[in-house]
């Protein structure tokens, strides 16, 4: 098995047209030409979209998780419906909903702040559905005895939740939330459908447009490298955090 793999690998290396690959994907002058804008516009926008949608998603998710854990049935129904709805749809549908469907339906209704805000809200609304389940799992993972100890000291149920349960729940869910952040970084590439202006392009859209003008594939390589520079350290951080959580407690 291993031998066949080696032979195939060697054959591929020998057959490949390295010169052509280098010219198409690793053109140094194209890289140099695009680099300033990649950093000052594209990577910056990708991070704005990611952080924006993460913060919006986290706030919505916390509300949804608390509703889903509530003893009041309509709250639970609402949260469940929301979560199932947005997890069941492709993210692209939600993005188009916020970018085009709502403006058509409500006579030019637009969120203030332009594409950066619209994109962040659309992705945040989707991310909230996933993060709500994560937060709920974290709250449930905190032992009941913690709430009982807090209540026995005279804390109200909401005080016990905010001072005792949630801080512990968040420690438990930092690794899965970081994973969610990495997923969001990649999902920002879907925002190309919003027809972004030069100043609001994120990495993927920027690379694609640059590819069209230069008729060269190098911009895609550059975008890929920038994505990896952000995502790889984060995923390795998650691994380290998970190891630490497994050891502690």
């Amino acid at each position: 098995m291993y031998g066949i793999f080696l032979i195939a690998l060697v054959a591929a290396v020998l057959v490949a047209d390295w010169d052509r690959i280098q010219r198409s994907f690793f053109q140094v002058d194209v890289m140099v030409e695009m680099l300033p804008q990649v950093l000052s516009i594209a990577a910056r926008n990708t991070l704005i979209y990611t952080v924006g949608s993460f913060v919006i998603g986290l706030v919505l998710a916390l509300i949804l998780a608390l509703m889903k854990l509530s003893t009041i049935k309509p709250y639970r129904w609402f949260a469940t419906t929301y979560i199932e709805f947005f997890r069941g749809l492709p993210a692209l549908i939600t993005i188009i909903l916020f970018g085009f469907a709502l403006p058509i339906a409500f006579d030019g209704f637009r969120l203030p702040g332009g594409t950066l805000v619209t994109g962040s809200v659309a992705l945040g609304v989707v991310a909230a559905a996933y993060m709500a389940e994560t937060i709920r799992a974290g709250v449930i993972a905190v032992p009941r005895g913690q709430t009982e100890a807090a209540r026995s000291l005279g804390m109200s149920s909401s005080r016990a939740l905010y001072s005792i349960v949630l801080p512990q729940a968040f420690r438990i869910i930092i690794p899965p939330l970081t994973n969610e952040f990495v997923l969001l970084i990649k999902d920002t590439s879907l925002l190309f459908v919003l027809g972004t202006t030069p100043m609001t392009k994120e990495l993927t859209k920027f690379a694609r447009d640059f590819m069209q003008t230069t008729q060269n594939a190098t911009p895609l390589t550059v975008a890929a490298i920038v994505y990896l520079l952000i995502t790889l350290p984060l995923t390795s951080l998650v691994r380290r955090l998970e190891k630490r959580t497994a050891k502690g407690r």
Binding site: P143, G145, S152
Partner: peptide
């Protein structure tokens, strides 16, 4: 409850 101290089998300190 503030007048009634309680001690549990599993301690339940806040970690």
């Amino acid at each position: 409850r503030t007048r009634i101290g309680m001690v549990f089998q599993s301690f339940n300190l806040f970690p």
